[in-house]
Design a binder for these strands. Structure first.
Length: 253
DNA sequence: AAGAGACCCTGGATGC
DNA sequence: TGCATCCAGGGTCTCT
């Protein structure tokens, strides 16, 4: 996509476009060229030669498909960005939770995000001090994108299990050693998830259409009633912060 | 400050 | 087979 110009944009589900209003967004991106592609947390950032950023969040079921114009369009494509060279970016999104933003200042959208967990500046000491400065239930805090950017429900549970830490723990009760282990675990799980092409439970696909394989490596997610791989405990499901939470009561403390 | 619950949506799985 | 209910990888908003 880099180097291609944006010829036009079509939208069939108005709420997909978060800001600005669609016709204004259309006017401002038509004729621009995609200079760079970046990611921040769970947001995809298209840097345009106009200086503006086109930002997309896929939420639960969003997919970006780069395909030739004129080819069969799958169901649930709500926004299409037409590129030079008869290519188009099709934003397919069954549940319609995804969003598109255009802004001259990407910090307007990304400014509230916490640190990138895989960056060198995200150290164990930083995580520990961040945890000490809050008094919140740990698992929902890990899902708070303004605390750390990019951790989702699956990887929060998997990280906590690897770290042998109970998801209901209050953040400022973690010892320095526990913070260190959690830090290592988060990084380990995210790196393995990337290596494995993400987790396909139902909708997620890699850019080439293939499924991810990380779901094969789940230790707790979706395993309620099954035996823990590390001890003799049984994985339980509970709800924390409104989200399914899987953990082993006997080895996560 | 932080937690609970509603809400945004569609579709698949399960139970009766 | 049909219908109701629950659940889902995310995130925002209101109320308390």
């Amino acid at each position: 996509m880099i180097g291609r110009s944006i010829v036009d944009i079509n939208n069939y589900w108005p709420r997909h476009i978060s800001m600005p209003p669609f016709e204004e967004l259309r006017r401002r991106i038509t004729g621009t060229t995609i200079d760079e592609l970046n990611r921040r947390g769970k947001y995809l950032v298209f840097g345009l030669d106009s200086g503006e950023s086109l930002i997309i969040h896929l939420k639960m079921t969003g997919q970006l498909l780069l395909e030739q114009s004129g080819t069969a369009t799958p169901e649930h494509v709500h926004t299409v960005i037409l590129l030079s060279g008869d290519l188009e970016i099709r934003f397919r999104d069954v549940r319609k939770f995804g969003r598109v933003y255009l802004t001259p200042d990407s910090s307007e959208i990304l400014g509230k995000l916490g640190p990138e967990p895989l960056s060198t500046s995200f150290t164990s000491e930083l995580l520990h001090s961040m945890l000490q400065n809050r008094r919140r239930v740990l698992k929902p805090l890990m899902l708070d994108q303004s605390f750390i950017a990019g951790i989702g429900n699956i990887y929060a549970d998997e990280s906590l299990h690897l770290a042998e830490i109970e998801p209901h723990r209050i953040s400022n009760t973690l010892t320095r050693e526990e913070s260190r282990v959690l830090h290592t675990s988060i990084r380990h799980i995210l790196e393995r998830a990337i290596e494995n092409g993400g987790a396909t439970i139902s909708d997620y696909r890699q850019p080439d259409g293939s499924t991810g394989e990380m779901q094969r490596s789940f230790s707790v997610y979706g395993r309620s009633g099954e035996v823990c791989y590390r001890c003799t405990g049984v994985i339980e499901r509970t709800v924390l912060g409104g989200r399914s939470t899987y953990y082993c009561r006997s080895c996560q403390r």
